[in-house]
Nucleic acid binder design. Structure first.
Lengths: 223, 223
DNA sequence: TTTATCTGATCCAATATTGAGCCATTGATA
DNA sequence: TATCAATGGCTCAATATTGGATCAGATAAA
């Protein structure tokens, strides 16, 4: 049995960390416990942990403990918490990345039935007479395109965006930006997206969606 | 056995909540009961419950009790739950949309200090000798690029992706795909991204990042 | 030998837990 | 209506845990 040195212990610790051992709440056991578990003195364990600290695997807090710097599952809720402060401008920027891609995916992957659902949402939105109804079916149109993108992660990101868009700052903005003229513009732009999807043309679908989102951004943010 | 601290208890509580334990009335037992059940002081249990309150899992009412905030199941927490099942393939697809954009934003928006931080992460990753250290600074390289993209929403989406990448299916995959040769390829690809950032060249930064992600995808998913 | 490292021990400072008590609100009961 | 038990909100002093730091000796390798 080779003598245990601090650097060996450090790599052993890394192994246990990357095996997901302490990922639960991101806290690793106290130095004193680790030392006795590995059968070394606390000083040695301290040096070992220092290696992890040096390469940023871990941060230490007096009186609290030693914590993994890698984010842990429990912090997902914190992330979505912070997301609630997302500015409309930032989100529109990302929508312009994701939605054209979603449209492109949909053009290649969607089933006929799914495309029918998209068309249906578009139809109702066009025929709607009041702002809340239009708002709802407009959102549904976009949602159904994501729904047939065949990428679960993309769909969930869009769900996040939908939720965020239902919050206070957006509501005001949408109310301000609504007008009959704009609604008809949105409808014809949606039509172009829908046509491209029905033609199974990813490239055009992507472009049409991007063009539409540029319009929305202009209206929403007033640029 | 790790000493029970408040945050541990919080995660234990979350586990019991998500296992449907107290779903019936949407009410969880009184602090005093929980404290004695977990064998901690009420103050500690109060702190634990406060964690749940902070991330919105629970609401407290003086004199009435503590209740689950279940009436909003279609919201964020549900999204988070579904996201945990994201497949690596789906996520890689989205990374290839977002990260080139992040690199492009970074090329135009990053401060000199931020770019220095990116370079630093790159340097340490290149010099690292073992897989966990490389892994960590590789992730940090990407993270720091997002950090200077100046888009809060984009940053938070990346945080979500980081968390998901720390879960089980990814671990196995990364372990399988790691090799000295691949590491050096990653390093030279990172170098090209970094160079483009330092040249303040959004277009090249985006392309270099996309090329890198294609490599990663090939290695990870074996295509 | 010299050098580096580990050991075992002790003290310190920051933080957390404990145990106890008191208050305000609530809802049920007399 | 008045009372009362249950519950969360809050404070406080004592104790325990934990990382930070240092030192003298033991051990092993060069």
């Amino acid at each position: 049995m080779p003598k245990l040195v601090a650097s060996d212990i450090a790599t052993a610790l890394k192994k246990r960390i990357s095996s997901g051992e302490w990922i639960e709440n991101g806290r690793i056991p106290p130095e004193r416990d680790l030392a006795s578990e590995f059968g070394v003195a606390r000083n040695t364990m301290r040096r070992a942990v220092s290696f992890l600290e040096d390469d940023g695997t871990v941060v230490r807090h007096v009186g609290r403990g030693t914590f993994l710097t890698a984010p842990n599952p429990a912090s997902m809720t914190a992330v979505v918490g912070r997301m609630e402060g997302t500015s409309p401008a930032d989100m529109m920027e990302i929508r312009q990345l994701l939605e054209p891609a979603a449209a492109s995916f949909a053009a290649t992957n969607a089933s006929a039935m799914e495309l029918n659902a998209v068309r249906e949402a578009h139809r109702i939105a066009c025929e709607s007479q009041d702002m809340p109804t239009f708002e709802h079916w407009d959102a549904e149109f976009h949602h159904r395109i994501f729904a047939c993108s065949r990428n679960e992660f993309l769909k969930e990101i869009h769900n996040l965006m939908r939720i965020l868009r239902n919050q206070a700052p957006w509501f005001e903005m949408k109310k301000r930006s609504f007008s009959e003229e704009r609604r008809s513009i949105y409808c014809s732009e949606h039509q172009m997206v829908l046509d491209a999807l029905l033609r199974r043309d990813p490239e055009s679908a992507s472009q049409a969606m991007l063009a539409h989102l540029k319009t929305v951004e202009r209206n929403l943010l007033g640029r």
